[in-house]
Each structure stands twice: as C-alpha cells, then as structure tokens.
C-alpha cells in the first residue's frame, strides 16, 4: 500500500513537470479563472500575487434539521481560521487552525502552469498538499500512542479550464491519508474533486462542488470497510471584490481540512445531510 502511494505521487509530479516543458511561446495567462484560492471546500488554481497575505475564515453551521435551532444556525458549528502567504507568484504556503479535532494544518499550493488566452496552454494546473496535526487529548489515540499518530495528509492535482468569460470548471484527482484510524476504517482514499462557477454579474457567481471519494476495491485494506464516506456536495453564491471574497453555500461536508471530508464524511446531500456555511477571505499586499 505504501509503495502504491509513493508511485502515485511520483506519477502526479512527473506528469506536471513533463507538461510544464511544453510551455514555449509567450501567451498571456487568462484573467481570473476563479475569484479566490478557495471555492466552498476546494482549492482552486488561484494563488494571490507574490508577497500577498491572505486571511481566511471558514465556517460551517450545524446540520439543517428543523426550526428549533434555526436550521442549524444555533447548533454546534465548525470553524477554521487561516493565514496564507504567497512566496512567489505561483507558490503559496499557509497554516490554519480548526475547531473540530483541534486540527492544526500546514499547506502549500504551487501553480505548475496557467491557461493562456490564445489557448497555447488549454488548461491551468496546480498542485496542492497539506498536512494536519490532530490536537485532541492523547487518550483518543488509544494504546501505543506516539506523536505521529496525529498526522494526516492530502494532495490534489488541480486541472482547470476557463471555458468562457463567465464559466470556469476544474477537476482534481486527490489522495488522502490518515495515520491512525479506528478499526475497520481505511487509511487511504482516492477521490475526485470537481468545482465550477458560473458568473451571474460582474461581481457574483453561482458556485458548485462535487467531491466524490472513490471506492476502489483493489486498494482496500479491509474486506469491507466499516465506513464508506459520502460525497461532499455544495452549491452556493460568491461575491468578490478586489481584496475580499464572500462565499455562502449549503454543503454536506462539515470538516474544514479536506482529508477528513474525503475519508469520514457521513452526510448524504440528497438525504438531508446539509448545512449552511460561509467563507471570507481578505488580501493584503506588501
């Protein structure tokens, strides 16, 4: 299994560098395929320009059940606060902290190449990876505790295409890993993350995501895993200005660090497992 993951990563990175060599003619990148580096729960191919600091607030309310807790608004919620910094025009690093499981995460996003206006390069490609540390009391990890039990990882190769002035889509094969899980649970999960946006006015767009964990029997560790995670689906509305982005949506994934949605999401979007959520980003340039 471990070998398999290493080969997978080598392939992903290899494919990226091969494609990068094809970039020869000078042709300007397309303007803003997405408005921000984040779209509901997914990362986009956007990295703010060099020396930009980004502050991100991500909030998910409780499940929409009934009016007693105002459809989840008063229920227990999950929140993530994060800072990202662009070291280069195509490289961003960031860290964040999340309420659920007291997750502390570190992330990096690298734009391999951008889609160009003359279609010399028809798609944009970015690589995103993160590592998170579960900050709960150590008894949660049971016997034989060691610090690395807390680690989890996520990697995505994001491929985007701005189809027209108003419509952009992207698809990302993803890989998730959690170091220590409950009996009968899986450690690895391969998934596909789809995101799209359709502009409805100069500043606002309808946004959509469909993150599907794949059930691949060949890589199961168990004959039948105890938990088959549900797709994290979301639909929302995005308003952007030059330094802010506001996103409001309903979605089915409560976790704010993507590997936990891909591996442990139990909410079925089509069976009432949805919640309100919002993201806010603010940019400062230095």
């Amino acid at each position: 299994m471990k070998k398999f993951t290493i080969i997978l990563f080598a392939l992903l990175i290899g494919a990226g560098s091969l494609l990068a060599q094809e970039e020869k003619k000078k042709d300007k990148p397309v303007r803003a395929p997405f408005e921000s580096g984040i779209l509901i729960d997914n990362q986009t191919v956007i990295v703010p320009t060099k020396k930009t600091l980004e502050f991100v607030i991500e909030h998910r309310f409780g499940e929409i059940k009934d009016h007693k807790d105002l459809w989840g608004i008063y229920a227990a919620s999950n929140i993530r606060l994060a800072l990202n910094y662009s070291l280069l025009d195509n490289l961003m690093i960031g860290l964040g902290t999340t309420k659920d499981q007291k997750l502390q995460d570190f992330r990096a996003k690298y734009i391999v190449f951008e889609q160009t206006r003359e279609n010399t390069i028809p798609v944009g490609v970015a690589f995103y990876g993160n590592m998170a540390i579960d900050g709960r009391e150590k008894d949660v990890f049971g016997k034989d505790y060691k610090f690395s039990n807390r680690f989890s990882y996520y990697a995505a190769l994001i491929i985007s295409r701005k189809i027209s002035y108003g419509i952009s889509v992207q698809v990302a094969p993803t890989f998730s890993h959690i170091n220590k899980v409950q009996k009968e649970y899986e450690h690895d999960k391969i998934g596909i993350a789809f995101s799209g946006r359709a502009r409805i006015s100069p500043q606002s767009s309808i946004t959509l995501q469909w993150n599907q964990p794949l059930e691949i029997e060949g890589i199961y560790e168990h004959h039948e895993p105890a938990l088959k995670p549900k797709a994290n689906i979301g639909i929302g509305w995005e308003i952007s200005t030059s330094t802010h982005v506001f996103q409001m949506f309903v979605s089915s994934g409560r976790a704010l660090v993507p590997q936990y949605n891909m591996m442990h999401n139990t909410n079925d979007f089509f069976d009432g497992g949805i919640m309100f959520g919002f993201n806010i980003t603010r940019l400062w340039s230095f």
Partner: peptide
C-alpha cells in the same frame, strides 16, 4: 518527507 511519515495504525482503546 511527508510520505515517509505515512503510517498505517489502528486505534485500540485503552
């Protein structure tokens, strides 16, 4: 570096 730290352990409660 990240991958080399991948582990495959299960929680056995005390």
């Amino acid at each position: 570096a990240f991958l080399s730290a991948c582990e495959y352990e299960f929680i056995e409660l005390k």
